[in-house]
Design a protein around this nucleic acid. Structure first.
Lengths: 173, 173
DNA sequence: TAGTGCATGTAATGCGTTACATGATTTC
DNA sequence: GAAATCATGTAACGCATTACATGCACTA
C-alpha cells in the first residue's frame, strides 16, 4: 500500500465519520476540492486499496446498494503518522499566472485586461466559497474552519493585489 | 495540434528569444516553474509537435549538437490568440492545506505545529524567489516583473496569515 | 411509467515525472 | 585525463480526468 494524496483525503474524511464512495465525493466537492480535487475514478479504486490494507472497513449499509466505509484503528494511526510527516513544500500550478507572464506581447490595455480577468477569477471563487457556508449545519471544527478561512482570505487578498497592481501599472503608462 | 499548458510556456519563451530545449528547461526553472513546472519529458516531445505544427522552427546552431528553435509568425499569432482566450478559473492543489484540514485529529499544540510548518514553507519559497533576483541581468519586462512580484507578495501574505491565525487559535485555547 | 437522482464502477485517455541512456565539450 | 556540465532524448510508470455503462428507488 503506497499512499498518495487522495489516500489521506479519503482516510481523513472516513476518520471523521463513516461514508459511502458517493458521500465521499460529495463531501470532497464541498470542502477539500477547492485545494485538492478528486474524481470517482480515483475514489472507488482507492477505497478498495484502503480496505485491502486494512485501513478502512466497508459494510453494506442501509437500503439501496450502498457500501459504507469507516476508518479502522490502523487507519487512524496511519493518518496521524502522515500528519506528523515530512515538511511542507509549497507547489503551485496556476495557468492564469502563466498568461500574465507572457502578457508583455500584448498592447498595454489588453495586458491589463488579463490582470482584470485574474481579479474576476478570484472574485468568482470567493463568491463560490461564500455560498458554501449557508449558515445551517453544525459549526466546523477549528482547523476545518481555518482552511475555509484560508480560501476566503486568499481570494480577498488576490482581488486586492490585482487591483493594486492594475493601479500601479496604469500610473506608469 | 492540440495545445496544452506546456505548449504556451514553450511558445511564449521562444517568442521572446530563440532557445534550445536545454535552454528552455533552464529558463523555465528560473521563472515559470514557480507556478507551472515542466520536465524534459514534456519539453522535447512538445518541441517536435510544435515544429510539425509550424509554430516554431528549429535549426542546428552553434557548436555542439544543439538545436535552436524560434517562434514563427504563425506561432506568435497562436500565442496571442491564447492570451485573448477563455476566462480564468482559479484551480489549486496544495497538500499542506490538506494536512491542515485534518489537523483536528491531533492534540492542539501539534496541530499548531502544522500551521507553523506551513508558515515555514512559505518562508522557504520566499527566500528561494528572492535569491533568483541577483540584481545583475537586465530588468524584466513589466508583466514578467509583475508575476515575480506576485510570488514574493503571495509568500509574504502567507507568512503573515499563518502567524495571525496561530495567534488567534492560541488565544482561544 | 417516466424521469430524476442515488449509487457504483471501469476503460480510455492524457498529462507529467522519474529514471535511464548517450555522448560531446569545457575546465581544472 | 578526470570531472563537471552541456545537451538530447526515450521508456516506464503513476496520477487524474472524462466518458461511459449499469441499475435501483423514489416521486410526480
Amino acid at each position: 500500500m503506497k499512499p498518495t494524496a487522495v489516500t489521506w483525503a479519503i482516510l481523513g474524511l472516513l476518520a471523521e465519520q463513516p461514508r459511502s464512495g458517493y458521500d465521499l465525493k460529495r463531501s470532497i466537492d464541498r470542502t477539500i476540492r477547492h485545494f485538492w480535487a478528486a474524481s470517482y475514478g480515483q475514489i472507488y479504486p482507492e477505497l478498495k486499496r484502503l480496505e485491502e490494507a486494512g485501513w478502512i472497513s466497508g459494510a453494506d449499509g442501509g437500503n439501496r446498494a450502498r457500501r459504507v466505509y469507516r476508518a479502522t484503528p490502523a487507519g487512524r494511526a496511519a493518518l496521524v503518522d502522515w500528519l506528523h510527516g515530512e515538511e511542507t513544500r509549497i507547489e503551485l500550478r496556476d495557468e492564469s499566472l502563466l498568461r500574465l507572464f507572457f502578457a508583455d506581447t500584448l498592447p498595454a490595455d489588453e495586458a491589463l485586461g488579463l490582470l482584470r480577468a485574474r481579479r474576476d477569477g478570484y472574485a468568482q471563487m470567493h463568491a463560490l466559497l461564500r455560498s458554501l457556508d449557508d449558515g445551517s449545519g453544525e459549526p466546523d471544527t477549528p482547523f476545518v474552519d481555518l482552511v475555509y478561512r484560508w480560501g476566503l482570505d486568499y481570494c480577498a487578498w488576490g482581488i486586492e493585489w490585482c487591483e493594486r497592481q492594475e493601479r500601479r501599472l496604469r500610473r506608469r503608462s
